[in-house]
Simulated scan of single mutants.
Amino acid sequence: MFKILVIQTLNNLSDERTEYLINDRLSFMRFLGLGLSDRVPDAKTRWLFRERLTQAGAIERLFDRFDATLRNAGYLPMSGQILDATLVAAPKQRNTNAEKADLRAGHIPQDWRDKPSKLSHKDRHARWTLKFTKAKQQEDGTIPSTDLAIPFFGYKSHISIDRKFRLIRKWKATDAAASDGARLRDGLLNKTNTASSVWADTAYRSKANEDFMEKQGFVSKVHRKKPHLKPMPRHIQKSNAGKSVIRSRVEHVFADQKSQTGLFVRTVGITRATMRIGLANIVYNMRRFLLLERINAAA
């Protein structure tokens, strides 16, 4: 059953589509150890299995279990760690201003309480935020001087990878409006890494984080922010450029997850979103592990 979840996550499939493709593809059947005459678990059975894992909070233990396999194979966290976060889209909620105010206050709107079926389809944990992106060139050849702010609804995946093997070592799922920097002090740092350096972008630069890393014995390689209403000093520019060469490696992890697994939350609630994001992280580590093994075999 867990192998089925791996197939489903790797190919970004719904429960019904997964059932169809397992019956249709011999490669899927071989991976699952099924014969042509064997029965394939239906979509409802897979949903129940995933739901039981979700309610038990098993995804963190499953991730740690595979991480132990990586360590036993010789892939220890080495050469420091890189932190970053990416937005994960979820189905948009059409709520009134009063309902939004109740959700921000941590209350369930009264209208939803009286309609249990409606409440079960309302995501009370996903949040709206602004996603800033570089403005594209216009038809007249000009490029706007300001970045574009695009409204985004969903969750956020926070990860910490080791610099040596680019494997995910720590992760956390939050709503999309959660602060990136606060997660650094919330268990995202990996204390078992053989090096103490920590790379991250300016979202993680704060006095609280710098003091926390110094107290915990980490060496900060976090990007420095541009002074307010002043040009960036030349030496800070050069320092940030050198850090970007290393920090940018974490972007390849998110690009792989979104291109290969189509990282998207179709479920309702932070608990199920955590399960989805955790599965995507495990599957990424599995694929990365196989790639590293092939590289070592060729060498």
Rank of each mutant, 00 (worst) to 15 (best):
I168R: 05
E51C: 01
W171P: 07
D147R: 11
T96D: 01
V250K: 00
T69G: 12
N240W: 01
P116T: 08
S220N: 01
W199H: 08
T54D: 05
L53H: 15
P116Y: 09
S248I: 11
P144V: 03
G187C: 15
R288T: 08
D201W: 02
E19R: 11
K44N: 11
R169G: 05
A73Q: 10
F132K: 08
F152Q: 11
N190F: 02
R17S: 07
T192F: 07
D102C: 12
K164I: 06
S79Y: 00
F28H: 13
R183F: 07
V268L: 11
I277Q: 10
N240M: 13
K122Y: 07
R25C: 10
L292N: 14
G217Q: 12
L48C: 12
D147C: 07
A203Q: 08
E293P: 03
F66H: 06
D24F: 02
I295D: 05
A98P: 03
P41N: 15
D24T: 07
D38L: 00
R247D: 03
Y75D: 08
Q55W: 09
G74M: 02
I4W: 07
V40A: 13
W128I: 00
G154M: 12
T194F: 15
G35D: 01
V268E: 02
S220G: 00
A135I: 05
T86M: 02
I246E: 00
L53M: 10
K258V: 14
E214G: 14
A105C: 09
I161N: 03
K131Q: 11
A182H: 14
L184D: 10
K156S: 01
A101R: 04
F264Y: 12
V265C: 10
D111V: 15
R272W: 10
G217W: 14
D162I: 11
N209H: 05
R294Q: 14
D15A: 02
M29I: 01
A126S: 03
D67W: 00
K238C: 08
S145V: 11
M213A: 02
A135E: 01
A85I: 02
L53V: 02
L13H: 12
V198F: 00
F264M: 07
N193E: 03
D175W: 09
N11F: 14
L167N: 12
N12V: 03
A297D: 11
A73K: 15
A43K: 11
R183L: 10
L148Y: 13
T18F: 09
D102R: 00
F28I: 02
T202N: 12
S37T: 13
T18W: 09
S157K: 00
I159N: 00
Q8F: 02
I159L: 14
A173G: 08
L83H: 02
R247C: 04
R272V: 04
K136R: 15
V245E: 06
S259E: 09
